[in-house]
Nucleic acid binder design. Structure first.
Lengths: 338, 338
DNA sequence: TAAATTTGTGCAATCGTTCCCGACAACGTT
DNA sequence: AACGTTGTCGGGAACGATTGCACAAATTTA
């Protein structure tokens, strides 16, 4: 079943050799118009499609790129994927998506899997559990092009595309303070993620500018980044039980922001009366939320596009690339209900 | 750059033939323990990985399945994808996801692309624009295993996995009526989608049971299924401008449900005072919505799992399968705020 | 007219792997 | 001693496509 037509079938039917057929299809100069025409016509008639697997084996490349994200059920990543696809399809590349579900183990397995399936390059946003990146650096050393986006591994010298997390965090925290918050807490995910560090830096900078001291007890970590309700609830309860209760929270992640709103709802914490809140989120239904969320939105689509452009540039480079860039795109602040 | 080690390298290093090395790695019986051991040891030492592309060419299969959905940025589909992956990875299959963005043209291109990349089978949920399915039926006739889920094409005789849309729609409409609604409207997407038809049938059945006449003007179609705000707004405004304004709406789709809430918010329509609403949705942040939504939730993860199991069964079948099933899984009604 | 060049085509190798077939020992059996 | 078995292994043909090289025929040039 499912017998695809090959170049051999055409050759046999037309009494030619496979090489002649190949040349006719590839449209090289050293072929007569007559045979070329007959081959092309026959190929079209029987619906010939070149076998990309055979080509991959010969050309030693698969015309496909692998994408490693934590979750497609995440507005930021699904928008980034749309950006990735928009560029990749244009250039004739396939996109293979794999999800880590924030697990280091799955990330390693998926990366190996993609590499062994001979993707020509990798677009990676590391999982929140990832601290050891040897699974990526060994591949990178072997010459596999890798571009990081969003959650980058600065230890690996390659292109990186991120949002201006520090500035976004600064603006959100600054906004909360300007609207009357005196004690701004910070809810973030895994401490070793690049985005966590950058957003923490922006948060601290804003406090600094306003002459507010940084309190370590105001910074709460949720390693699962909002995927576990209990973890988020525990973090918020910890903040609420402090002697000097915070009056605002700056939240560092997409799932964490909605998770936080869920906890607020259950604990009957009103926004902005009891607590102000601003957080990173790329959800497209933010306007429907109650409590409402002042959000920092990343240019996810553009980040995906840019990262893909840079990856394809690496893949198609004639000579090994030595100079790498870190591209930083600006975020947008959407104020709601404060 | 990136020179992978092949079976030939091992053969040369150990002074064996490639066939012997292959046998040692494949662990066939006709090989001595000693050579097998030495080959396996050396292979491990230099990190040999079989080339899956070469294998695909030889075995005429790629150990990968293609998934066609409208959008990954859709709770239902991203949950279904998780279900698909959970089964596929377990059985050693790769999952290649492609999005149609509800465009027929893109669906055709993507399906061709996947087929030419030699996926071993296809999991398909057709786009809302799709009426002509020859791009799928020709492949199916050639012997490519296809399983439909969610939005099925009944013209093609193969396995199908769906939610009990009719019953879910019935329960939602019934719920609205039992809670006092006298004039229940129906907002749905493309009229030719299987899910639209099934849900419409359930809606009509509920009206029927309660002895309420069906009014065609109460049924509004949004071909873009909530992706275009203007379209959704126009449909709702049409309902509101009727002489006998509906007092409840049953909404037939995920994006349409949230789209509808967005319009309500902007038009300051209160729920349930001005209008009751119930709709299909698999969003995991429904509890945060205001206006709130009574939702019908599909077992998306299980649908993905089941569809994948059936597809793999078709792919790995020794003999052509002639008997096909349609599996129907039950939905859940979550009542909110009425 | 013969030699030189151009033009069109086929042969065979290649990519990495598997597997059928044949070779050839070292046995055991008559 | 001759033959059949059994266990190991190598040779080589596939899988589908491309491409350098060789070579014949057609064309141009001397």
């Amino acid at each position: 079943m499912f017998e695809p037509v090959t170049i051999k079938d055409i050759a046999k039917a037309l009494g030619l050799s496979t090489s002649t057929v190949s040349r006719a299809l590839r449209d090289t100069h050293e072929i007569s118009e007559a045979t070329k025409k007959s081959v092309l016509e026959y190929a079209k008639a029987i619906g010939y499609q070149p076998n990309p697997i055979a080509l991959s084996l010969k050309e030693r490349r698969s015309k496909s790129i692998g994408v490693v994200v934590s979750e497609v059920a995440n507005s930021y990543f699904s928008q980034a994927i749309n950006g990735i696809e928009s560029i990749a399809y244009d250039k004739g590349y396939h996109v293979i998506i794999s999800q880590t579900h924030e697990s280091f183990e799955r990330e390693v397995v998926n990366v190996q899997h993609l590499a062994s399936r001979s993707v020509d390059g990798l677009l990676v946003s590391v999982s929140s559990e990832t601290t050891d990146i040897t699974h990526l650096s060994t591949l990178h050393q072997k010459g596999l092009p890798i571009v990081f986006f969003d959650r980058v591994a600065n230890e690996i010298n390659t292109h990186k595309v991120i949002a201006n997390n520090e500035k976004g965090a600064f603006e959100a925290t600054d906004h909360l303070i300007r609207n009357g918050a005196k004690r701004v807490a910070h809810l973030t995910s895994s401490s070793h993620l690049s985005i966590s560090k950058e957003r923490l830096a922006g948060y601290k900078e804003a406090l600094d500018v306003h002459g507010i001291a940084i309190r370590e007890e105001y910074i709460q970590y949720c390693p699962h980044g909002g995927m576990l309700y209990e973890e988020t609830e525990r973090a918020i309860k910890a903040l609420l039980s402090l002697p000097e209760k915070p009056d605002a929270i700056f939240v560092a992640g997409d799932r964490l922001s909605t998770g936080c709103l869920g906890v607020f709802k259950n604990l009957k914490i009103r926004v902005p009366e009891d607590m102000r809140i601003a957080g990173f989120s790329n959800s497209d239904v933010l306007d429907l939320f109650n409590p409402s969320l002042t959000s920092i939105r990343q240019p996810a689509f553009e980040i995906g596009q840019k990262a893909t452009q840079m990856l394809l540039q690496l893949i198609e480079a004639k000579y090994p690339v030595e100079e790498f860039e870190k591209i930083v795109l600006e975020t947008d602040l959407f104020v709601r209900n404060h």
